[in-house]
């Protein structure tokens, strides 16, 4: 991607592309939305059959897949909507409250 928005917070009026156009595609990847989440999905590898339904349903493309197998969640972009957990036919995905988990980690 050619459009570098890493310093967008420091841009002045004339640095922005004219007319609020976005002059390149694929830059939603740089926009981290994981912080909007209050619950996060966790996957039980024993129950998972790799049917990939979670990957199909995820509205944020936040299910990481390698070699046709689910590997991890992309927590930078997962908003914790829970669609994956609802759709999983094998109850392999559970939603875990973010706050509780953080407390538990301490």
């Amino acid at each position: 991607m050619s459009w570098d928005i890493s310093k967008i917070d420091q841009w002045k009026a004339e640095d922005f592309p004219r007319g609020a156009a976005i002059p390149d595609a694929g830059n939603s990847r740089d926009y981290v939305t994981g912080g909007w989440r209050s619950e996060r999905p966790e996957r039980d590898d024993d129950k998972c059959t790799q049917c990939l339904l979670c990957w199909i349903f995820c509205p944020d493309s936040a299910i990481n897949v390698a070699d046709e197998k689910v590997t991890t969640f992309n927590y930078d972009h997962c908003k914790g909507c829970g669609v994956c957990a609802t759709e999983c036919p094998f109850d392999a995905i559970t939603m875990v409250p973010e706050g509780c988990e953080l407390k538990g980690e301490k």
Binding site: A20, A21, A25
Partner: peptide, 18 residues
């Protein structure tokens, strides 16, 4: 590269700068 027009620039975004 594909361009998008008619974008959002609110909530502390750069509307003012535009």
């Amino acid at each position: 590269p594909p361009v998008s027009h008619g974008n959002f620039a609110g909530l502390g975004g750069p509307y003012f700068e535009f």
